[in-house]
Amino acid sequence: MLTILFDGIAYGMLLFVLACGLSITLGLMNFVNLAHGAFAMAGGYVTVIMMNRYGLSFYWCLPAAFLVSATVGAILERLLYRPLYKASHLDQVLFSIGIVFMAIAGVDYFMGGQQQLINLPPELKGRFDFLGIGIGRYRLFIIVLCAFLVVTLQLALTKTRFGSQLRAAVDDGRVARGLGVNVSLVFSLTFALGSGLAGLGGALGTDLLGLDPNFPLKFLIYFMIVVTVGGTSSISGPFLAALLLGIADVAGKYYVPQLGAFIIYALMVLVLILRPHGLFSREGGR
């Protein structure tokens, strides 16, 4: 029981790291980026290539995954996303589905369609018992790392100059621009950061979530749930949503496996009916 809770938390934290970039792009640019999962997948494949082809340590893969995805994100943002910030949501949807499809086919071409496996370092394998709770070492590692990231992110958003510029830009881009904030640069950096975090999440998730070319589509629904349920006005909303989703998904698969992902989708639709702007959003009714 508690083990499930623990696993759920690990899963949820991972989902948060994967999805928080999406929540920022949505909140900041009002851009519906369905291709977010592609950046996560990039991080995952960076890890696979580095570990399996070049035998590098897992720990090196994590920052590398972050950097590669962030760079890819930054380049794509400059070249392709930028002209579409003002486009209709339909255009954004079509465009980002296009990116997803190309990413899926591209990865399939270069890496093959099979599930990718990595060999975690020995110290991250296995479980130990703590007060009767079975604790997976790797999951503990994820929780610690993600918790650290969440705290850092929260501090960065509230305490640094960049954070306040970002929040100003989210609240009202025009006003922020008037105050001398370089909104375009803030957008780029944020997009890169979000992509990088997704890449890191993809790297961390290779072992836990599995990795194959369909990753961006398979987890798209999860990212979208985190964002829509959590709202885009803060990071605590998506964080809580991700935790809930993680726990619900793990528990659901454990207790009622025959229902599969049904519960998750049903829950999401239910939340969207009751609170179209997310469970934890400030706007509430309107």
């Binding site: 579409l84 954004q92 465009f95 589905i97 296009g98 990116i99 190309m102 899926i104 086919a105 399939d108």
Partner: peptide, 15 residues
């Protein structure tokens, strides 16, 4: 790699 081409068409169409 049909999917790749759909993707490309979608992106081109929008851009």
């Amino acid at each position: 790699y049909w999917m790749f081409w759909i993707g490309l068409i979608l992106i081109a169409l929008v851009l």
